[in-house]
Design a protein around this nucleic acid. Structure first.
Lengths: 203, 203
DNA sequence: TGTGTTGGTCAACGCTTGTTGGCAACGGTA
DNA sequence: TACCGTTGCCAACAAGCGTTGACCAACACA
């Protein structure tokens, strides 16, 4: 469908390293794309701006990634690296998850990019759903008592964790930004703990 | 600074009704603009699309609202209509706030529009901060024990409430969408209650 | 009846966007 | 040396954007 065929006779080097000569450029493009998507969202992150940041011509972006959608798909790939929660004391699940999420959000800007794009772009929103399904659901499944409640409980965790990221890293609501990391953890950990392990509340 | 002067010799009708003849058109524009901003975000909500939805020419939008920023400012004005929490039993604060927020989000699409725009547009983000400051902060101030903790507690509430709106109405994470309203309230109410009234947790 | 204001359309402007194709340099390989 | 795939730039395209100004029809009022 698109022209992003990576079947261009790989291993072009004779010395043995499998890296293409262009790989540095490809990486520069992806890094610049992540920064732009994270700070500007999908529409305002123009291919021309990404190319300028990467120090190359816009047409190179097209050649390597087909089109803008392909660039986004290549630049924003998320692995939440969720820890094995079964190895933890049960009462520390909430704290572990919150600290891990804060780590991931502060590690690089790819999660900010995903959230900013997901809000105004269908492909971005679907990607977030896929990550939820493939990464958060299984983790919740490992610690939740009733399998039938897993989607609900995982979604509740998502509301609180994404809400924190939204206010702190995207909207930059001042009190959420200045809130010390330790204090955020102390407040949110019991919430996540309850969403994962507490009995279903009377509705 | 902009051209949105509403000083165009008002009361143009002789019969006594203060409505301008154009008011129907103005309202149609604002309604269409709210829908577009809510479903498409700021960039993709084009003036041409809004005008087409309203059944008029794009230049009319410019005449009445100056420019796109003016249109957004006029279309997206938020009054959270927060109830007087001091009139409620203290243990029902959380439930009251959550149900009220869900009411507001489902009443019309202006909150969805504000969130979608706030994520990728500086003016939108600043407007959300202003609403937080002018509407949520005072409400929290009325029920929180220590005034010094009010911004933190209000921000914590914002993370949870905006997180629910984000996943349920914007990202449309399936489990958050299908979650029955009553169940969402039952789960979130204790969280909000704790953020507002519980003792500061050990950090 | 004439006149000025209002509500509205039309056509165009300058600009930016994603995207395309042609062409020049480089660098291994035969 | 001659070749050929790779890397890169340049110039341009068509489309869409916000925005502008000229122009017309209807109306209110003298």
């Amino acid at each position: 469908m698109n022209g992003s065929d990576s079947s261009t006779t790989d291993s072009a080097s004779g010395t043995g390293t499998g890296r293409r000569r262009s790989e540095a450029t490809r990486d520069a493009i992806l890094t610049a794309a992540r920064e732009r998507f994270a700070s500007d969202g999908y529409e305002r992150a123009t291919i021309r701006a990404v190319a300028k940041d990467a120090g190359i011509d816009p047409s190179m972006v097209m050649r390597y990634y087909g089109n803008k959608e392909g660039l986004f798909a290549a630049a924003v790939t998320v692995d939440l690296k969720l820890p094995d929660l079964t190895a933890l004391p049960r009462e520390e699940l909430g704290r572990a998850l919150v600290t891990h999420f804060l780590d991931m959000w502060e590690e690089n800007e790819v999660l900010t990019a995903l959230l900013r794009v997901g809000v105004t772009n269908d492909a971005g929103a679907e990607r977030m759903q896929a990550i939820f399904r493939a990464q958060l659901l299984p983790t919740a499944h490992a610690v939740c008592p009733d399998p039938e409640q897993v989607p609900t409980r995982a979604a509740l965790c998502a509301t609180q964790l994404l809400g924190l990221a939204l206010t702190r890293y995207v909207l930059r609501l001042p009190p959420a930004v200045t809130l010390p990391r330790e204090e955020a953890v102390a407040w949110l950990a019991p919430t996540i703990q309850r969403y994962l392990t507490a009995a279903h509340p009377a509705a």
